[in-house]
Design a protein around this nucleic acid. Structure first.
Lengths: 117, 117
DNA sequence: CAGAATCCCCTTGGATACTG
DNA sequence: CAGTATCCAAGGGGATTCTG
C-alpha cells in the first residue's frame, strides 16, 4: 500500500482484490483449518475437528465448504465402509502460504508493540 | 506457512499471531478506511465518509475507534470552530502496507484463477 | 465416520434521526 | 462537523440431536 501514488476510487481493482482475499480468509476458523490440512497433507473431517480447538462440526462443515468453493482445498471420497473423506490443499491453496507467513510475522510484531510482551 | 515442518498445537503462537492480524483487519471497511487516510495523509471524518463508498457514519465511527485502539491511526482534535478532527496513520499503521500489498496481489491472482477473468 | 438439522443467542451492519 | 442513539434485519456461531 504505497501511500502517495493513488487516489481512492481510482484503486477500485486493488480494493476489490484485497476484499477477495479477505473473503477467503474471513471465517473465524479458516486459517486453523487450512493449517491442519496443510500439516498432515491429507486430513479427515473428524481429524480436523480434533486438531482445531473449539470448532464445532457445524462450523467445520461450513468452513470446509467455503474453502472448497474457493478452490483452496479438495474433497475426496474414498470407497471404504464407512466412507472416508479426505481433504487436501490444492496448489492454489498452497499459494496462500506467503500471506499467512506475512500475517504471522506482522501479528507477532503487533502483539509485542500493542498488546505488550 | 511451511507445510511439512510443524504439528498443530505446536504452532499456537503462530496461529495466535495470524488471528491477531485478522482481528485488526476483519471489519468490512477497515482496509478502505485505512487506504483513505493513507492517501491523504491527514483526513477528516466526513472526508472519509465520502471516500469510502457505501459506509455509514455509524460504521465509520466504529471502524475508526477500533483502528485507534489498535494504534493503527491517531485522532487529533484541532481547536477550531466547529472543531476539526484529523485522522492519520501511525508509523505502526504504515507497517500494514506489506500485508495489504500481498493481499492485493494474491486477490488479483485468485480472481483470475477462480472467479474467472 | 461425516456430516445435516434444529434451536437460540450474539454480533454486524444498514437506515434513520438526533446532538453539541 | 463529528459523531451518538435507536431500531431492526441478517448472518455468524455455539450446543445438541439426528442420520445414512
Amino acid at each position: 500500500m504505497e501511500c502517495e501514488d493513488f487516489k481512492p476510487n481510482e484503486h477500485k481493482e486493488e480494493m476489490m482484490a484485497v476484499q477477495d482475499t479477505m473473503d477467503v480468509l474471513r471465517g473465524k476458523w479458516k486459517i486453523e483449518v487450512l493449517s491442519s490440512i496443510c500439516f498432515y497433507n491429507k486430513r479427515r473431517f473428524s481429524d480436523i475437528l480434533n486438531d482445531v480447538n473449539g470448532i464445532s462440526n457445524k462450523m467445520l462443515s461450513k468452513e470446509l465448504k467455503e474453502l472448497e468453493i474457493n478452490q483452496m482445498i479438495t474433497r475426496t471420497i474414498l470407497d471404504t465402509h464407512p466412507v472416508t473423506i479426505l481433504y487436501q490443499l490444492t496448489e492454489h491453496g498452497k499459494t496462500l502460504g506467503t500471506i499467512i507467513d506475512n500475517m504471522t510475522e506482522w501479528g507477532k510484531m503487533h502483539r509485542k508493540k500493542i498488546i505488550g510482551k
